[in-house]
């Protein structure tokens, strides 16, 4: 799975810490998500997409 989280987060001018707080997870989880090392639950994927103002499929891309 690829992700566009880093790029979208930068566009929203959010730090990893801020995104973590807004989505209710630890900062390390955001790091793992951005590196594509962790597959989020549907709920977390939805929360991340909502904060980034995009659709889930725009943020997380399944090849």
């Amino acid at each position: 799975m690829r992700t566009r989280m880093k790029e979208m987060r930068a566009r929203k001018d959010l730090t990893q810490e801020e995104l973590a707080k807004k989505t209710g997870v630890r900062r390390e989880t955001i790091v793992f998500l951005e590196q594509g090392k962790y597959n989020p639950s549907l709920e977390l994927a939805y929360r991340v997409a909502k904060v980034l103002g995009a659709k889930i499929e725009e943020v997380f891309i399944f090849d």
Binding site: A20, G24, V25, R26, T29, Y38, S41
Partner: peptide
């Protein structure tokens, strides 16, 4: 302090 101690990954 940190707000979240455990999340779905941990």
């Amino acid at each position: 302090e940190d707000g979240v101690l455990q999340d779905e990954r941990t």
